[in-house]
Amino acid sequence: MKEFKYVVQDELGIHARPAGLLVKEAAKFKCAITLDSGVKKADAKRIMAVMSLGVKKGVEVTLTFDGEDEDAAFAAIETFFKENL
């Protein structure tokens, strides 16, 4: 299992658009990917769950990866957060 923490920089937080992109990115991998807002956890492959976390700017989220391709998923999702959020 791997994980990283990230503080959301985007003015609007994880709103519809980045949530959609994140889910699309996460769907490319087999491993389980969990997004933890510190209050609630969501499966990063489910858009409603991700959006309903209501992650705002400045919130630290934790991403965990568990499964066979977790290394590749970790790298891709980390890049995604840095570029989009």
Binding site: A16, G20, M48
Partner: peptide, 16 residues
Amino acid sequence: AEIFEAHQMLLEDLDF
């Protein structure tokens, strides 16, 4: 236009 892509994803959302 991306909103409609988001709608597509909502349609396919596993919880839904």
